[in-house]
Design a protein around this nucleic acid. Structure first.
Lengths: 256, 256
DNA sequence: GCCTAGGTCCCGTGT
DNA sequence: ACACGGGGCCTAGGC
């Protein structure tokens, strides 16, 4: 690791180092006293204060205040950087082309600057998402109801969108299934209703619609009853527990 | 500024410094080689790689890979930290109480560590959001239609939620107005429909519903027609241009 | 480019 | 605590 670390740099020296770093596509962290302006979909100003600015190798940039999860200002990956040194200020202009947005950071003081390429080939894997619920249901449709058979996943229903699953119940009814990892509401019921209506026009037999989620909000319950749809409570945790018990294909194999 | 900066610390020394920093409620930035685990609403693992970890004064923590706008793992403000040094590893455990979630970061190597309190009393101000559209419309309802009068803003419509505005047109009809800063869709039409239905039960005269947004998606258009609601195209930019021309009260004065 | 759908979304606000 | 609405949301996938 060849990180270059600078303490208490004058802004004009910081400018030179930063220019080199950006030319070499390095990551840069700057801690210092700055002000920030943004113009684009919205616009904002932030007066002077001490912050952490992170520039990443993919052309993203974040301005972090000493509190809060979110960056106060930022630019997503792929933006263009221009740096300048004038009147004792280190100026960083990060421009995004589409939509056209400009972020300008002006450092009055640079306390610390860390420059260097970071090597990260680590593998990130996530679990207990909607995908895991889908896999569990595919392997064991009786998690939703006894006798259910899954026919297709991610069924294209044209204008209506994509149903998570379509299947068939023990009585031969067509079943459209929409799965949510979290508590569902009106929006999710409406989504299912679209799929069911579309399916009714395509299938020459009774069509049921089942919303699968950990729970359903009051408004969603009202709409669900009006539209004569059904709800089945199921949590990602219970799906995960089920998957643990079953020797199974990997998610990747499932996807192909 | 009294930032403490450490290069190439052994993990056990990093542990001691980090413990002191957290006890003093300082911000900490660590650049190093680490692995990460998360368990909570979902769960994830991330194998070894070089990353930037930021701990903030409000108890939030972010793990940033060298690419991407978003942190790969994180914990929002208010979490509890526990640090440990064992087997040559610096271990940081950040726990959130509700929902119960645990983030564990294990550093194999610490390249740089920066510790210190940051002072940021800067003032952040945002413009051209939905609020600015509302203010422009309030000052000049004819941006929506000639002869419109605004009666109240944020009218409480009980179960149905809050309409952005209610007003009265030149023919004495009651008008419910929903404003969106961005392209609107089905969801926004549905929201307006709720407000209109609620208003109809409360007002003893014809009720119109107008959705105001830069544009309306196809699906939204269909639903809008079905529900006999109306759409008026208006962009935040045009509202901003209007506001610039008018000497006006501040947003704060408007809010009271 | 637009549109759809999801997220450990986060965040404020109100009940 | 839950629910609802908003965000410069961001991100990924399809067309």
């Amino acid at each position: 690791m060849g990180l270059r670390i600078f303490k208490g740099l004058e802004t004009d020296n910081a400018y030179l180092e930063l220019k080199t770093s950006l030319a070499n596509n390095e990551s840069v962290i700057i801690v210092g006293d700055c002000e920030v302006e943004y113009y684009g979909r919205a616009s904002s100003t932030l007066t002077r204060g001490e912050r952490v600015v992170m520039i990443k190798q993919d052309g993203s940039i974040l301005v972090h205040r000493p509190e809060g999860y979110e960056p106060v200002n930022w630019q997503p990956p792929g933006c263009l950087f221009k740096v300048d040194s004038l009147n004792g200020l280190l100026k960083i202009v990060a421009t995004r082309l589409s939509p056209h947005e400009v972020l300008t950071i002006s450092f009055h003081k640079v306390y610390v600057m860390v420059c260097g390429r970071l090597y990260d080939k680590g593998i990130f894997s996530m679990h207990a998402s909607e995908d895991e619920m889908k896999e569990a249901i595919r392997l064991n449709p009786s998690l939703i109801e006894e006798g259910l058979r899954i026919l297709t996943s991610e069924k294209d229903l044209g204008e209506a969108g994509y149903a998570d699953f379509v299947g068939e119940d023990s009585k031969g009814n067509f079943v459209v299934i929409e799965i949510k990892r979290e508590v569902a509401g009106e929006e999710e019921v409406l989504q299912l209703a679209r799929y069911v209506n579309e399916a009714k026009q395509r299938v020459n037999r009774p069509v049921r619609g089942v919303l699968v989620a950990p729970s359903l909000r009051r408004r969603g319950q009202v709409l669900l009853e009006q539209l004569k749809l059904e709800f089945k409570a199921l949590t990602p945790e219970s799906c995960k527990r089920f998957l643990k018990k079953v020797p199974r294909l990997s998610l990747l194999e499932f996807m192909e």
